[in-house]
């Protein structure tokens, strides 16, 4: 995401410098030209803020049970009703944003770091590195993803962080293949040849020259992968092996809430809407970023 901040102007980061006027002008032009992208950047930032300030936004302790008021419909006191143990659904959903944001960041970081490093090495060094990494990724892809995740989580012991590791591992092939393909192209470019000629070390070329130049597709992939990670974790929660109760995890809340659809559908609707909105935002942001960053598609 570091690369993303460099490439995408985030409104709140702009401000009081001497160039403010010019920037403001370019900002409004940016917004007009890229309405969808701007809108989803704003929504995304809002989601991040909700996650960061979840404790302040929650109206009740999200894990405190109150059996006497279980399964209430939305009211002034409980905006999204209460769950099967009388916990405030609004507070749980808000607090769940924190969990899901952590999932996206940690899982995607794992996939990104492992996948990109493997991809760089395989693409740039070729030979044995390419063979080993390639075979590993082939083997992993051959495994049915959800079963691999279940097996990893069970082997490590169920829990949110182990589930994030499993989801992170699931995403490795995507980044590996993306990076490797990009590196193979970049290797033939003149700036790489030039760096080689002046005797830059191979690691330096990989990380200082090639990586920044292939960052765009990775940023797009990261945004899409954030959505994937949240969905994958929801599936693991659905199977009951991710978050430790009473942690307010959206997937786990939907998992239980789905059993109560006839009784109190709000128990599923709140977290369902939250997870949908979040994943939707990640995907839309990824899509819009791709359109923005890919000059070929921008023409016309």
């Amino acid at each position: 995401m570091v690369a993303g901040e460099r490439l995408v102007p985030i409104p709140s980061a702009l401000g009081e410098s001497a160039l403010a006027a010019r920037r403001k002008h370019s900002l409004s032009r940016f917004i007009v030209n890229h309405r969808v992208l701007s809108a989803f950047i704003v929504i995304f930032v809002a989601l991040v803020l909700v996650a960061v300030f979840a404790d302040a936004l929650a109206t009740y302790n999200p894990t405190k049970t109150a059996p006497t008021i279980k399964m209430r419909s939305p009211s002034g006191a409980h905006w999204l009703g209460t769950d099967y143990l009388g916990r405030d659904m609004y507070s749980r959903v808000i607090k769940g944003a924190q969990v899901s944001m952590r999932v996206a960041v940690i899982a995607v970081s794992i996939s990104l770091v492992v996948g990109v490093v493997m991809g760089l090495m395989a693409g740039y060094f070729g030979g044995l590195a390419d063979l080993l990494c390639g075979r590993y990724v082939d083997a992993q892809l051959a495994f049915p993803g959800i079963l691999l995740a279940i097996a990893i989580v069970n082997a490590l012991g169920p829990g949110l962080y182990h589930a994030m590791i499993a989801v992170g591992i699931l995403g490795v092939p995507l980044y590996f293949r993306l990076t490797r393909g990009q590196v193979l192209q970049a290797k033939e470019q003149e700036y790489v040849r030039a760096a080689e000629v002046i005797g830059a070390s191979r690691w330096r070329i990989m990380f200082r020259h090639i990586l920044p130049n292939i960052a765009n597709p990775l940023v797009v992939a990261a945004s899409l992968a954030g959505g994937n990670a949240i969905l994958a974790l929801a599936a693991l929660s659905f199977l009951g092996i991710a978050a430790q109760p009473p942690t307010p995890d959206w997937g786990a809340m939907i998992n239980i809430g789905k059993d109560y659809l006839h009784n109190n559908m709000w128990m599923a609707i709140g977290p369902g809407a939250a997870i949908f909105l979040t994943v939707f935002t990640y995907y839309m942001l990824g899509d819009a970023l791709r359109d923005y960053l890919d000059p070929r598609l921008k023409t016309r």
């Binding site: 006839h262 994943v279 939707f280």
Partner: peptide
């Protein structure tokens, strides 16, 4: 496509049953 990609399939399944 974005709406249904973002909707977990078990939620969709449960909604259809309902």
């Amino acid at each position: 496509s974005l709406v249904f990609v973002s909707l977990p399939n078990f939620v969709l399944g449960v909604l259809l049953i309902l």
